[in-house]
Structures are given as structure tokens and as C-alpha cells.
Amino acid sequence: MEILYEGKGKNLCPNTPMDARKFARTKTRALVDKTMPLEEAVEKFVLDGEYIAIGGFGHIRIPMATIYEIVRQRKKNLTVAGHTAVQDIDVLMAGNCVIGVEIAYVVGFELRGLSGVQRRQFESGNVKMTDYTNGSMSFRLRAGVQGIPFIPVNVMLGTDTMRNSPGKVVKCPFTGKKVLLLPSLNPDILIMHAHRADKYGNCQIDGHIVKDDLQARASKKIIVTCEEIVDTEVIRSNPQNTVVPYFMVDAVIEQKWGSHPGNMPYRYYFDNKFTQDYLTAGRDEDPTVIEKWLDEWVYSLDNFDQYLKKLGEDRLQGLVDLEFLRGGA
């Protein structure tokens, strides 16, 4: 196949589909209890230098309890799939855990504006960037699942998004037209937050799945937090709702409110004030302001339950009212 154009970006994920496939062979197919404390799961499965995928959509159904724990354990040199990354990646970057990002959407908090933490780190040149798009990141995962080394796509063509990616434009051997080839993607680990799971790791999500299904199938390891752990009979009575089956999952943790301050569809809405205060701290020119925020909400606390206690039950219940459009939005 004739290569007509080569992008100058780097593929920041070293895994091949064969690596992921071989890893899958080592995982048990037995129904074993995978529940464990979140501290243990992060210690065991999130390793310095790994490539991490995050479930949900940046500030919706994000695994914040796991994010905080990664920061608390001061994990280092992570590369992150910014397949729309908002509050999740921001806290990881504030905690200096990140050295590279494959970007579809970062820095922005949508209607709330831009992040000071991310701008500082990206604009200093200290964090490696490779730009993609939301669609193309999903297409790459699809290739990783399928076990093929690259995937032809018809987005990004002709743009600087393409020029700064590792994509290669080739002449289609069937039609003679140009197509863009992008490398497949198999992350080391997916961290995700589900509505419910059983102790074996069968996960169900209510509402939009976003990309957790593809990420789960492409990634080598998975840590699942969920709003509630349910009996396997609950899963078996509605198996069509299972998004991730148990044999892909390595750790399961029940963590109610685990997406706070993110929005958990059908459970609770954004904690806007919390996110605004966080953004304000991150935008301060004095970098000790965000460090103090991390001290207060992450480092000085032993775990996510202490964080929830600090927030208080009333505040959390208010987010349920917002979700169900009771008393304003």
C-alpha cells in the first residue's frame, strides 16, 4: 500500500493487540469474588508508567474515588487516554501523575470554561501530547478489540489533527481514494464506575454507555467501582443490561457516590459548587493553592468514605434532587 502522507505524532501506547490477547489468557474464567478495598486494587493494578483509560465522559459517570486514590498513592508517569477527559484527568494532573495524554478533549470543562491546571502543564511542554478525536479514539479501541494493528478511518483527513497524529494516509487498494490509518489502542488498565456490579465483576450501566464497553474489551486490566454490589441473580435476571462481563474484570469495589463531583445518570447530578471551587483553586497563579486543595480533599484523608463524610449527607442528597429536576436545575 502506497503511503501518501505520514503524521508526525507519536503513538503513546506501546501495547499491541497481541500483548492484550496474551494477557487475557492469563486471567481466570472462574467466578471468583473480586471485591477488595480500593486502596488494594489501585496498589495492585495501577502501576507507574502505565497507559490508563477512564470510563464515562470526563465529568459524567467518572470513577472519581479511584482517581483520588491514584493521586493519594502518588502514582507516577501515567499516560492517559483523553477520550474526553475533564475533572478526572484534571485531578490526576494536579497530583502530577501524568506525563502523556492522547487527546480527543482535555483542558475544557465544557460550559464552565478552561482548566488552569491542565493549561499550565500542557503549555509548559512537560506533558507529551498527541491529538486525535473522540470518534477516532473509539475507532482505535475497536481495532484493539478486533486484534488488528491499525484501522482505516475517514475523519481527521486534511487537518492539523491528522498532521500531529501518528496516522498515515494511504491509497485505498480497492477504490484508489485516500484513507487515514490509525494505530489500534489497547490500554494497560481501565478504571470505570458502574451503577451496579456483582462480586465477580459483571457490570451494568444505566443510560448511555459512552465508551466503557469498548474500553473494557480493549484494556488488559479493569478496576470497577460501582454504586452498589448486587446479588448475581440481579444480573442474571437482566443479562441484556450487562456491559462488561466478569472475566474481563480484576477488582470490584462498592463505592456509593463514587463519581462525585461528577454526574451519575439516574442517581445524582453535578456538584457544581465543588467543581467551581476546584477550578478556581486550579486557576490561581500560585500553584500552592491547588496543592492545598489536594491536601484538604485527598492527601489528608485516608479514603473516599472520609471525603464523603466531609461533604455531608445533606449536600449529597441535594445532588439527587438536582438529578431528578426537583427544586431547580
Binding site: 480527543a104 478533549y105 503549555e123 478525536t133 475523519v155 481527521m156
Partner: peptide, 26 residues
């Protein structure tokens, strides 16, 4: 995506494509 002339050290870094490039392509 960015303001500036060096992709690796942008003067101002913006969010990037999100789904915009996909939408605008498709």
C-alpha cells in the same frame, strides 16, 4: 486546539477536537 506556532509548547492550549472533527468530517 491551540494558539501558537509550536504544537508541543502551545501559547494557549484549548480542548482539542472532542467530537468536532468527526462531526465536521462526517
Amino acid at each position: 486546539t491551540m494558539i501558537g506556532d509550536n504544537y508541543n509548547i502551545p501559547k494557549v492550549r484549548f480542548p482539542g477536537s472532542g467530537g468536532a472533527n468527526d462531526f465536521g468530517s462526517l
